[in-house]
Amino acid sequence: MSLAYLRGVCRHYRMGNSVVRALDGIDLDIETGEYWAIQGRSGSGKSTLLNLLGCLDRPTAGTYVLDGVDVSALSDDALSHVRSRSIGFIFQSFNLIPQLTVEENIEVPLFYQGVAPPESRRRARELAARVGLTERLHHRPTELSGGQQQRVAIARALVNDPAIVLADEATGNLDSATENEILAVMDQLHGMGKTIILVTHNAALTRHAEKVMVLADGRIESLRTRAEADAAGEEVP
């Protein structure tokens, strides 16, 4: 079975007596090591899908099996555990904890795994070095540029060696030069065999992905490989 297996996944929000169908019948198979891009207009359900994939949320209907475990039935604690072991999140607004230093921010996922301080510090430094932040270990997030903050967030997402890295509009708050830097890091991660799911409203950013899925109103509008998408000529890099 694939790494992530979704069948008929729905996420409905009840608003008074109307129902918002943020996701409505999603079928997906994501294999280990694939690089996916999920594209769609604002409000199409991208973040909702990413949160489900990242076990932050549960589907209201349908099945989601991650790495052989049916997570649609797991308890809150079990979901936390899955997030802690298998998921790396990267957010649009970086979401670093302001009162912690760069090093401490990177250590947070290890903290919840119960890794002892010397080991977690060692790993945090290793990751910081990988994203080129060795000089900034003891700085606060507010003392860093947007690109540096996002690199801290990437280091943090990778520190627990997750099976899937989920990036929600990861470059949305960055200038194009920094955006390319971050995308290069993603390519690098993909080269190292990580499964990557990149959410973006910008079709131009999907060019790095192997598979491009377009969402519209909570449904899959199209799902193509890179080659198919290029052939269709839907976007020009």
């Binding site: 604690d77 936390s80 997030r83 802690s84 998921i87 919840y112 627990n160």
Partner: peptide
């Protein structure tokens, strides 16, 4: 609140 969300996303349980 946001910090709580971040920590939860990074693996914190309710008990944490």
């Amino acid at each position: 609140t946001r910090e709580v969300g971040i920590r939860r996303a990074l693996g914190a349980t309710q008990q944490h």
